[in-house]
Every structure is written in C-alpha cells, then in structure tokens.
Nucleic acid binder design. Structure first.
Lengths: 196, 196
DNA sequence: CATAATATGTTGCAATTGCAACAAAAAAAG
DNA sequence: CTTTTTTTGTTGCAATTGCAACATATTATG
C-alpha cells in the first residue's frame, strides 16, 4: 500500500531501538504494521514496568496519556518494526488532502480504540490481583485462552514477565517453583502447561 | 432530551442498586447521564476490587470485556443514577430507525473511547506501583492535579480507596499514618493536603 | 432520637514480597 | 568458535503487606 499523504510517516526500527517517547504534546497516534514492541516506564525508584506489549496492528501513542504522568514512557522495538505515525488532529478534523489513509483510519477508529480498551481492562485485572501467585495464574489462564490450549509458550522472557506483572523477578521465580512443586503447572524453558 | 428510538433504554437507579452485571453476551454499552457508580469485581478469594469509578458522562458496559474473566463484574450505583443502555451493534451498524441518538453517539464514539483509554492508562499506572506508599502518592498527585490544588477531598471512603488501589485496608491506613508522621501529607477526615 | 450499620483507626503476628548477591545456563556479538 | 552479555535459577534476610480482631466514630434508618 502506497502512502500518498504528506502528513503520515512510515518508519522502520531495529530491535531495541526507541520508536517514540511520550511527550504528550504532539497528539501522536501510531500503528504497528509489523513486529513487536513494548511500552515501558521507569519510575523514580528505577523500577521498570512493561505497561503494554504490542503486536501487529496494535495502536499506541501520546494521545492515550493526557495528564502528565511525570514518569518517562517510551516504546521500544522488541524485533524489527514498521510503524505508521499520525497526528490525531489530522484524523479527527479530516485531513485536508482528503487522503484514503486518514479517512479509512477514521472509519476504523472506534474498533481500534475498542480493542485497546479490552486489552487495558485485561491488564487491569492482572494488576489488581493481590498476590504474585494470583497474577501468574490469571496471566497463564489468559494466554491459555488465547492459544486455546493448556500448553503454551510465554511470549516474554521471564525477566520481562516480572516487569509486566509489576513484581520482583526473584520473588516471581520462587512462586513459579512453588506452583510447579504443588502440581499446578509444568514448566520447561518458557513453555508452560496448566495441570488444572 | 427526548428519546425516540425504541432500542435505547433509559433507567433510573437508587444508591446501592446494581445497574448492570457483565455477562459479555449482549454487547451492552451504557452511558451514565447522572450520578456516580462503581465497576466492582469480587475474585474467588472474596477480595473486592473497585475496577473503575464512573462520573457523569462516563461510559461502561460489557463491550469492553470480551475474553471471559471468570470473575463476576457488576456496576453499582453510589448515588441516584440515570443511565442510557445501548446495544453496540445498533451503533456500529447504524440503527435502522436512523434516530439522532444513535447517529450522534456514533459520531462521538472515538472521543468517548479515547477518554476511557486515558482513564484506564492512569489506572494502570497506579496499580503498577510496587508499594502501598507509591500507590497512595501517585493517586494523591492525580487528584491534586485534577483539582489543581495541593489540598483536596478524596472522592472515596477510605475503605473504597483501598479496594480501588487493590490493597488491604488496614495496611493502607498504617501507611497513611506513616505518611502523616513523616510530614509528607496532612489529613483530616477525607481531606488531604500534600506538603511537598 | 435511638439503634443499627458502616467506616475509621489501631495493633500483633504471620505470610508474602523485595532486595542483594551469587552461580549456572543460554543467547548474542564479534 | 570464543567471549561477552543477558537470562534463569536460587537463597538468606529484611521490609512490607495481609489478616484478624478489636474499639471508636460516623453515618443511615426506622
């Protein structure tokens, strides 16, 4: 697909490159056309949180954060990525060049936003679990549902999973071990099988 | 405003009444025209979480939860509420009665969804804080920003605030006391002043 | 206004979690 | 194929948190 609108930018990123930093002034909306990326935050204690994990066709950008969070937020490529950059005002107010791209995006906006909301609500359900065990089990049942199988590969390194669940890695490893010992799960490498 | 479409329902609720339960089959979308309400979840351990707190013009409903969460979710009126009930398909596929209401809602959907996303992202930021102290401080700074003042009333009971931050109430009370003792905040009743 | 129900405030104790530090394994880089 | 870097796995210990059980204050309700 060829982009004929001067206001849309398409860029490529290599693994570990920063795709964008949230400055919350430019009203940027991005679409991940290809690859995987993480939205990452470091708080003032140096704790890293993987706020979201993006796959093909996921959207992200400053427009989702108005109130300043005083923490640095940035999106990092986890593999080779192709990203489209829009300015939200050009979508909302209809691009003057009246290009297909902007119009089509405007049509799809509700569906895109809706799937984003669904993702965020699942995220909140995970984070609101009180213990590491409950977070792990909730996360596993989610991935299991997605893959429609009791056996699946965690799409994260375990280090990243801890940052995603917002818990200490070593404490999470300990809990994983206990879950194995108690016969709730089987695990080898990043492959998990639910035994319940 | 008079509703001329037979597919839209408007209902009133008294305090503590259940406005809707999420069954995730009816594709329901609701708009809170008046009052305040909480989206509440109880997990299998009996822990209550206030997932979201809704004010006038906020939206909620099943459409935001597709993947079954196996936990009971319901919306509870915290004061007298007036609520509009839509079915999302009637909005998306354009209502056959071609009523103003559905059309207008369709127009506003992106903005409504967007503000929902912004709310959810702030929620995630709170929940991903590692300690009760950090959750409290992040929450306070949020309310402070909203009210544009270092001094503000918490719009929750403290019991509800604990359920909102997903922490034990007594542990939260303890932390509040320590924050007072260490001179970070002043607090009397549900009125808090930030001293930093 | 009396009574019931709910919310606030407190504490000891046990369980969970985070931190620090390390060894071993695996993956990436040259 | 070596070397470097990152990830996994483990543990002791300290800090944080949750639980249970209260007393008191405040708010609803008849």
């Amino acid at each position: 697909m060829h982009i004929n609108c001067s206001k849309i930018q398409q860029k490529e990123f290599n693994k570990n490159e920063v795709i964008t930093t949230y400055i919350a002034k430019r009203n940027q909306l991005c679409i991940l056309l290809n690859g995987e990326a993480d939205l990452v935050r470091y708080d003032f204690n140096g704790n890293k949180t993987i706020v979201e994990h993006f796959n093909k066709n996921d959207i992200f950008g400053e427009i989702f954060y108005t109130v300043s969070t005083n923490n640095e937020l940035f999106v990092e490529a986890k593999s080779k990525c192709i990203v489209l950059f829009f300015v939200y005002d050009d979508i909302k107010n209809k691009c003057k060049e009246n290009c297909n791209f902007h119009n089509e995006l405007l049509m799809n906006l509700p569906e895109l936003f809706l799937s984003q909301i669904i993702d965020l609500n699942m995220r909140i359900e995970l984070l609101s679990k009180r213990t590491i065990r409950d977070k792990l089990l909730a996360y596993f049942s989610l991935v299991s549902l997605r893959n429609m199988s009791k056996s699946f590969a965690i799409p994260f390194s375990l280090t990243d999973l801890a940052d995603y669940l917002s818990v200490d890695r070593s404490a999470m490893m300990r809990e994983l071990k206990i879950l194995k010992e108690e016969g709730f799960i089987e695990k080898s490498g990043n492959r998990v099988t639910l035994l319940y």
